[in-house]
Simulated scan of single mutants.
Amino acid sequence: MPIGSITRGTTGTNRLRRVDRWIAELPAFRRAAEALVVDLGYGASATTTLELHQRLSRVRPGVEVVGLEIDPARVALASLSARPGVRFALGGFEVPLPGGRSATVIRALNVLRQYDESEVLSAWHLMVSRLDPLGVLVEGTCNEVGRVASWVDVTAEGPRTLTVSLRLADLERPSIVAERLPKVLIHRNVPGEGVHAFLRDLDRQWQLNAALSVYGPSQRWIATAQGLAEAGWPVQGGRSRWKLGELTVLWEAVAPQGFAW
């Protein structure tokens, strides 16, 4: 039997475009001999799975994408939209793949949001066990239109980074992402926790660089990322990612108190 609970199934066109763009740049995806990507918990329609394949196939024309859902009715409906390189199947956190194959990337967006925080680690371990040795689990949350998103990338060694991705136009405070943090962090946005300090300093740098708005929000965001790095935060990437409204930090800087892989 599939492992997990049926989600609300909320989905929508372009909702996951930010995380799709990030996955397309992952070294694990680009260097895989045969890229097999799993869209876990795609929801009530095939939309986000089909979009994932469309975006990734621009980088890897032969990529395979498998959409997994634990609701048989959703699988039956989505299967009507199957096409070369895209198929749909019944499955949950156990990530069943034919022939015992392993996944290059597992995308699980807006799946663990409905679970208790205490259930996250076991779900992570189960999904990671279905990855190839260099594979990556990308797990996180976004808002209904995909303009506010965050995710953690997890490997066999444990979580590596936290990424936030925001639509910069008209952004008042980056800490709006607090409402869309991955489940493992969303209840840790309190004094004394790393993610709370990170969001506090992110807001501070955004305000300090407000004058750069005359050059556009991307320039302000780039300066915000640089300011965080100068303040000692382990900011990853560079201007090419920052200008998209992304910011990635190493996991150890935001990991919950007492977290152990």
Rank of each mutant, 00 (worst) to 15 (best):
A169L: 05
T104S: 14
H187E: 15
L50C: 08
S150P: 00
L247S: 04
I222A: 13
G146I: 09
R204Y: 04
E144W: 07
V105E: 09
L56D: 10
L228F: 06
R200P: 01
V214R: 13
V214T: 09
V190Q: 05
A253L: 01
L199D: 04
L162C: 10
A35H: 15
T155M: 08
L250K: 15
E144V: 11
D153P: 05
P159T: 14
A229V: 00
E94D: 03
V136T: 15
A89T: 08
V145D: 13
V145F: 06
E157K: 04
W251M: 11
T248A: 13
L247P: 05
G258C: 06
A76W: 07
A28G: 14
D71T: 12
V95D: 09
V148M: 02
E119P: 00
L168F: 05
W261V: 08
G135F: 13
A123C: 12
Q219K: 15
V38H: 04
L126E: 15
A78T: 03
N143K: 01
G100H: 04
G245C: 10
K183T: 07
Q54M: 00
R200M: 03
R74H: 09
R107D: 08
G43F: 00
R74M: 06
L80Q: 15
P61F: 08
G43V: 00
V95C: 13
G146V: 05
R147V: 05
V111G: 02
P159H: 14
L26S: 06
R30C: 13
Q54R: 14
G4L: 07
R58F: 00
R18Q: 14
G135D: 15
W221I: 08
S165G: 12
E193L: 04
V111W: 02
R113Y: 07
L80E: 14
V65H: 11
G85H: 14
L52P: 04
L40T: 08
D132C: 14
D116K: 12
R30L: 15
R58V: 04
R17W: 03
V195W: 03
E25N: 07
A260K: 14
S175C: 07
A24H: 10
E34W: 10
V37E: 00
V59P: 01
M127T: 03
R31W: 05
A178V: 03
V128E: 11
